[in-house]
Computed example of a mutant assay.
Amino acid sequence: MPLSERQLAAFADKHGGQIPFDTSPRHLAGPGDARHVTHGLAAAGWTRTSDPLSAEIILASPDHRHRLQFDPQSATSAWWRLRAEPADTSPGWYAEFGAFVPAEVLAGLTDALVAPTPAEPVSPLPVLEAAGWLIDGRGAADSNPPGCRVERHPAQDRGTVPWREAGRASWHVEVRDSPDAFVGGPRLWHAFLDDAVPEHLVTAFVTALADTAPLQRGMFDPTARHGVVQEPSPLTPQQTVDAYLARVKDLRSQARAAHRQTKSPVPPARAATTQPAPRR
Rank of each mutant, 00 (worst) to 15 (best):
G227H: 12
S264G: 08
A210T: 10
P268H: 08
L201K: 01
A258T: 07
V228H: 07
P237Y: 01
L209S: 06
R225H: 13
T207W: 00
R225C: 14
Q216I: 08
A213Y: 15
T207Q: 00
P276H: 06
D242G: 05
P268S: 08
P222A: 12
H259L: 13
R270M: 08
T207N: 00
D242V: 01
A246L: 13
E231V: 09
Q239K: 03
K249M: 15
Y244F: 07
A246I: 12
D211C: 04
A257F: 03
P232Y: 03
V229G: 11
T262W: 11
A271D: 03
A204C: 07
L209N: 02
T223V: 10
T223H: 07
Q261R: 07
H259M: 13
A243C: 04
P214Y: 09
A257Y: 00
R217H: 06
P268G: 09
M219H: 02
A277V: 04
P237H: 04
A208M: 01
A269T: 02
D242L: 06
K249T: 15
L201S: 05
S233N: 08
D250C: 11
D242C: 09
Q216P: 01
P214M: 07
R270Y: 10
T212W: 15
D250A: 11
A204H: 06
V241I: 02
L209G: 01
V202E: 02
A258E: 14
P214D: 11
A246Q: 12
D250S: 12
S233W: 12
Q239S: 09
K263R: 07
A204S: 04
T273P: 00
Y244K: 01
A224R: 07
V241M: 05
K263C: 06
P237W: 09
A258I: 12
K263T: 09
P268D: 12
A204L: 11
R260H: 09
A271E: 08
T262E: 15
T203G: 00
A210D: 14
A257Q: 11
D242K: 02
V229Q: 12
P268E: 13
A210H: 10
Q238I: 00
L235N: 07
T262C: 11
G227L: 09
S253P: 05
Q216K: 03
Q254I: 11
S264W: 01
V266L: 13
